[in-house]
Amino acid sequence: MRELIQFRNIVKEFDGQLVLKGINLDICENEFVTLLGPSGCGKTTLLRILGGFIEQTEGEVYFDGIEISNVPPYKREINTVFQRYALFPHMNVFDNIAFGLNIKKENKDVIKQKVTKMLKLVGLEGYENRAVTQMSGGQQQRVAIARALVNEPMVLLLDEPLGALDLKLRKEMQVELKKIQKEVGITFIYVTHDQEEALTMSDKIVVLNEGEIQQIGSATDIYNEPENEFVAKFIGESNIIDGIMLDDYRVVFFDKEFECVDYGFHDNEPVDIVIRPEDIDIVDVEKGMIKGTVKSILFKGVHYEIMVETEHEDLKVHTTDVSEVGKEVGLSFFPEDIHVMSKMAAY
């Protein structure tokens, strides 16, 4: 796939504070890329640099091979869906969507045709004359998406667009956004702090923290092979344990040696070990690799979240089996469930 956008060593400083610390990132054509990270990690800043609303302190942005730092936002082939939609309240749905086309002085019939097509794409046929202020959050969201897409941009930027919607609507819109992206076949760059949203929709996830990229990869890569403790903790739930890598495929933690599938570390290197709660099975005491006592049980709907107290650290287990507090249990997992990561560099 062709690389459409390239960030080269992007640094952004606000009042002496480094918000982005040298971002290097390539984004390809037709990709659904998610910038994922906690609030204040710099993801929105990066998006706004690409949109042209703020300027980076250092570094270059290439769009289709051309440096665009000095191109004003209205000349970029990029459109944005803003966090709180930023619809024009003095215009109806039709005029909101037609705004970009009217600015370009397109033919009235062409505008009508394109707007109608967009309304169909976002499922708002017949809403042309509705005032945007009289619409629900979900509908306003759709208008904002249509308003951006009608200009046929090469890239659509979405800044936490589903943040204001309720859970059910958010899930529906996630599926719909993915569908729309496939239908129009352009690059979507999506900013969110919701890891589940990122996992559901993205072709590529970029995990950011404190202005630095932590990991770039597909949803499965990021979930199954987190590169460091931050990614492991931020994406999904995890037990993170200190351990020592003896040599390839052999790791020690909880004073015990385990077989694993990781290799390529130094001998006797201190490492972080991730075991996802859903990968741990509760078995009889004598069959367990680790022994412990059930400390607490929380019902989470689909599964129970059980905290098991061991001699070393408490471990979190997700299971559909019932257990009871105070019961002695054994814990068991497979070698491939143990994921070994290098220790994070100390800040």
Binding site: G51, F53, P72, P73, Y74, I78, N79, T80, F82, Q83, R84, A86, L87, F88, F99, G100, I103, K104, R147, A148, N151
Partner: peptide
């Protein structure tokens, strides 16, 4: 964001 939205859509 409203002025930004307009410029994003091609308005000077």
């Amino acid at each position: 964001n409203i002025a930004e939205a307009a410029m994003d859509l091609g308005a000077t």
